[in-house]
Design a protein around this nucleic acid. Sequence first.
DNA 1: GCTTGACCTTCCCACAGTGGGAAGCCCCAT
DNA 2: ATGGGGCTTCCCACTGTGGGAAGGTCAAGC
Lengths: 154, 154
Amino acid sequence: MNIGQAAAASGVSAKMLRHYESIGLVPKAGRTEAGYRTYGEAEVHTLRFIKRARDLGLPIERIRLLVGLWRDERRPSAEVKRIAAEHVAELRTKIAELTGMCETLEHLAAACHGDHRPECPILRDLEGRNRTRRPKPAAADRRAADTAGGQATR
Amino acid sequence: MNIGQAAAASGVSAKMLRHYESIGLVPKAGRTEAGYRTYGEAEVHTLRFIKRARDLGLPIERIRLLVGLWRDERRPSAEVKRIAAEHVAELRTKIAELTGMCETLEHLAAACHGDHRPECPILRDLEGRNRTRRPKPAAADRRAADTAGGQATR
DNA sequence: GCTTGACCTTCCCACAGTGGGAAGCCCCAT
DNA sequence: ATGGGGCTTCCCACTGTGGGAAGGTCAAGC
């Protein structure tokens, strides 16, 4: 198989395939005399593994670990489970974050009449006037916001 | 105010502030004779608007539109609402996607005994043997799939 | 054989957003 | 005047994926 066929067989694009090789996620493919990469069933098998892991949102570095464990006949399943659990935790965090954003925005949009008039609760909220709510749970970083209230003309 | 103070007052980092200026999201700041950027209340106000919009996950280009509408005293609120609705739709799509991944992975992890033995349903699934389930919703279309909440018993 | 078109090669660029850091100038307090 | 911290610009990194150019190759049609 050449790279195009391997790509079609695995679901990983040829472009990504070369990329994965370049970062060492998959070993360097063999080459024909003309320089074309060649792939066999084993390589495609690995690529499919990677593809599925990517479909689950696993980042490359974690996939690298998983592939290593996968190849290791004596791996402890606890290792695999730990990696999966870490990813689940991150997914949950992300989901919660997005859900919060989504709810806030839905709320604001629901309050907006959405017609030709300029009055708009969404803009009002973003502006800071009339903040309807907005708990803003994650990633606290706002510091010294009050200095704006003063002059600070230096 | 110099850039550091404006950053502290707005919650936008100085680095990002320069970046926003460079991409034209905010107008070029005034400069002192020495070349330092100067900011006033109005600029900080705008920056806070941008910060809040970013906190809601809005991408820069959409924020650009919102800022334009915000400045436009005669904007139709429908425009603002439309932009918000688009973003909500994208958030929902993303949430559904992540939720699917999360459920699959939780499922697999739950089936993994997680001890010293190499047997592992997670790897088995990724490998393609013994696919427990995995509907693979593929492309982003199913809105509000999160509310459906597929239970474990599929 | 020779042309043609599809495919391969490498290499660079782009995206979104944010941070890190270097080299060099500026400001203020000591 | 000196030192430390803030400012300036510029480049690089990250995550993953794609686009595209310039050039070599393979296979099929004539």
